[in-house]
């Protein structure tokens, strides 16, 4: 009886750890949707680039800096990559509507992925993190690393919350999301706001990829595209374009994957997210229409 309970609590704990990764990714995806109004399928590649840049910059690769520094640099580089990608591919066609942008983003995903494979090979990699023993509390064990992932995610969510509610940049992002043409005539340089949003969105993607790499080693250059389904499910569940919804969606998807893996079968973990995604589209189709933040 006690062990059934602790098995359940353990599954919930793992679910919340995975939710931490999903949440960072989902908030990033939803922010860019909120201001640009199209679903960026190249977003998964930001995760992959984050993990691989962190890998090459840290001990496991070039060995120049430790993982925390490598992670920060990688996140900033992926942010810059997001700005560059939007500038080169998305901005020139930004007035053509959501569908051309979405299809372009699928093409961009392929380009980025094969560039990464060309540069880094398709080999599976691991971030230089130590193996750690779980800390047990009331029969539930998590490693300090897993707790660290949760902490980084919580801090990131808090930072994004403060950005959106307290800073002028955040308010102009929300204004642009709510009514872009009014934002423009209200004196907001919406091009600049969108550029900054791309940076933040891609950087969040890069960070999610690094957190993924910390938890789920080894990883291949293709992991981002696969994990995009999971991130996407959380984003839609919360209503795309809504950061707080994305956080909630991440918790639900994380729990679903973890409980499914524990009680059904561990071999279908991402399929649970996919089922959730289909369920959302059937039961809550307004999720894909989205809102503003």
């Amino acid at each position: 009886m006690a062990s059934a309970l602790s098995q359940f609590l353990q599954a919930v704990a793992f679910g919340l750890v995975e939710a931490s990764v999903i949440s960072v990714g989902a908030v990033g995806l939803t922010l860019s949707y909120g201001v640009t109004r199209f679903i960026n399928f190249a977003y998964g590649e930001f995760l992959a680039y984050g993990a691989f840049l962190a890998f090459f910059l840290s001990g496991a690769g070039a060995g120049v800096v430790g993982l925390p520094v490598a992670a920060v640099v990688a996140v900033l580089l992926v942010g810059a990559l997001g700005v560059a990608v939007s500038r080169v591919f998305f901005r020139p066609i930004s007035d053509r509507g959501a569908l051309p942008l979405l299809i372009t983003s699928i093409g961009v995903a392929f380009i980025l992925r094969y560039l990464l494979i060309a540069g880094a090979s398709a080999e599976a990699r691991q971030l230089p993190v130590p193996l750690m023993r779980p800390v047990e509390v009331a029969g539930v064990g998590l490693t300090p690393l897993e707790l660290g992932v949760v902490a980084v995610s919580v801090v990131t969510m808090l930072a994004i919350h403060l950005l959106l509610q307290r800073t002028m940049l955040g308010k102009t992002m929300r204004a642009t999301s709510g009514n872009r043409s009014l934002a423009e005539v209200a004196g907001i340089d919406t091009d600049a706001v969108i550029r900054k949003t791309w940076f933040i969105s891609a950087a969040a993607g890069g960070l999610a990829g690094i957190l993924y790499g910390v938890l789920f080693a080894p990883f291949r250059p293709t992991f981002g595209f696969g994990y995009l389904i999971v991130v996407f499910a959380a984003t839609l569940l919360g209503g795309i374009g809504r950061p707080y919804g994305a956080m909630l969606g991440a918790v639900l998807i994380g729990l679903m994957i973890s409980l499914g893996s524990t009680y059904l079968s561990a071999s279908y973990d991402q399929a649970y997210a996919f089922i959730a995604l289909v369920g959302v589209l059937l039961l809550r189709p307004e999720g894909i229409r989205g809102g503003e933040f």
């Binding site: 308010k171 929300r174 204004a175 999301s177 709510g178 009514n179 009014l182 934002a183 005539v185 004196g187």
Partner: peptide, 27 residues
């Protein structure tokens, strides 16, 4: 650009959708 009109002293209230619905009054 439209956003450069405000610093030149022009204010504009469109006919429809003239507030940011997702922002509070203060915001």
């Amino acid at each position: 650009e439209a956003n450069e009109m405000v610093p030149r002293g022009i204010g504009y209230v469109p006919q429809t959708e003239n507030v940011f619905p997702n922002l509070t009054v203060d915001e």
